[in-house]
């Protein structure tokens, strides 16, 4: 009885001074690094400010959006972003599920394999990208050598579709651990009785997986898809060192497009227009996320 009387009092009053103190460092960081640039970014996007021109800044309305956002270049970059996101997640879920199922059986040595599978997520992405660019070297790379065993000779980074494939492969490689570990935890948390009774009732392997286990994992898979989409969509390091957006602009995704506008051409206002457009594009994910992370 006493409990329920005390709880609201302690929880919501008397503590607001302390609450302000507790949230202040975080809030200051968020205001200076998130809120301030978002507002100035929006302001830049409707002006002609640039880091290299000395023209006086003036309001230009939607001109930057016309020049940068409603263009073929932008929709190509959006397409690249979506392709990377879609294919890396689909392949991760497919391979990740099979690996997680095997790991969840806790055979001898599982713990060792978990350590190995964890590695890619922790290793420096830019260093991995660099080493892959050595391995994919068309003259002396390891990949060329491996191809010679199966009679192939493809220079992966030279054609648009294979270059994109290489990027997707590295995105798959780098974030497979996350998918495997989360799926494995999901599988281990499933009620054993349901799976057992389904197999006693004569469900075969396919039925067991497709009709029983995967539907029960749906919430976990949803979380994976959302978190992975956010990360795959913002991919940057690997593209920067492996393809530089090439060949042509075949692997330029939205973050790379914004980067090039801002730091190759030093056109702050145009880059800001791209940035604002990216915020608009990720908005639906924002709403899903804020539903997921209720405090």
């Amino acid at each position: 009885m006493i409990k329920s009387e005390i709880r609201p009092v302690r929880r919501y009053s008397r503590s607001s001074g302390l609450a302000v103190m507790f949230s202040l460092p975080g809030l200051l960081l968020l205001i200076s690094v998130v809120l301030a640039p978002l507002i100035t970014g929006f302001y830049y996007s409707v002006t002609n400010s640039s880091l290299i021109s000395s023209e006086p800044t003036r309001f230009v309305g939607l001109e930057n959006y016309r020049n940068e956002v409603f263009t073929q270049t932008f929709s190509d970059a959006l397409r690249v972003s979506l392709l990377i996101t879609f294919f890396s997640i689909v392949t991760q879920l497919g391979t990740g599920y099979v690996i997680a199922k095997v790991l969840a059986r806790s055979m001898r040595g599982t713990s060792f394999f978990v350590s190995v599978i964890m590695l890619p997520m922790l290793l420096t992405p830019v260093a991995i990208g660099m080493m892959w660019s050595l391995m994919l070297n068309p003259d002396i790379g390891v990949v060329k050598w491996l191809q010679s065993f199966v009679g192939l000779d493809v220079n992966f980074l030279a054609t648009p579709s294979t270059a994109l494939g290489a990027i997707i492969f590295l995105e798959w490689w780098g974030h497979l651990p996350f998918v495997v570990l989360v799926l494995m935890a999901g599988i281990l948390n499933l009620p054993k009785e349901i799976i057992e009774s389904a197999s006693i009732d004569g469900a075969n392997w396919w039925q067991l997986n497709l009709r029983v286990i995967i539907p029960m994992l749906a919430p976990v898979i949803a979380v994976i898809v959302i978190i992975r989409s956010v990360n795959a969509f913002r991919m940057f390091d690997t593209i920067f060192v492996l393809t530089g957006g090439g060949p042509g602009s075949a692997t330029v995704n939205l973050p790379f497009l914004a980067y090039k506008a801002a730091f190759t051409y030093f056109d702050t206002s145009r880059a800001s227009a791209i940035a604002v457009a990216i915020v608009v594009i990720v908005m639906p994910v924002y709403f899903i996320f804020s539903k997921m992370t209720k405090v």
Binding site: G41, R234, A258, A262, A271, A275, V276, I278, V282, Y286
Partner: peptide, 12 residues
């Protein structure tokens, strides 16, 4: 949910 580059352009 936002790619960091969105903030880094104006932050720069």
């Amino acid at each position: 949910v936002t790619p960091a580059i969105v903030l880094l352009v104006p932050l720069f």
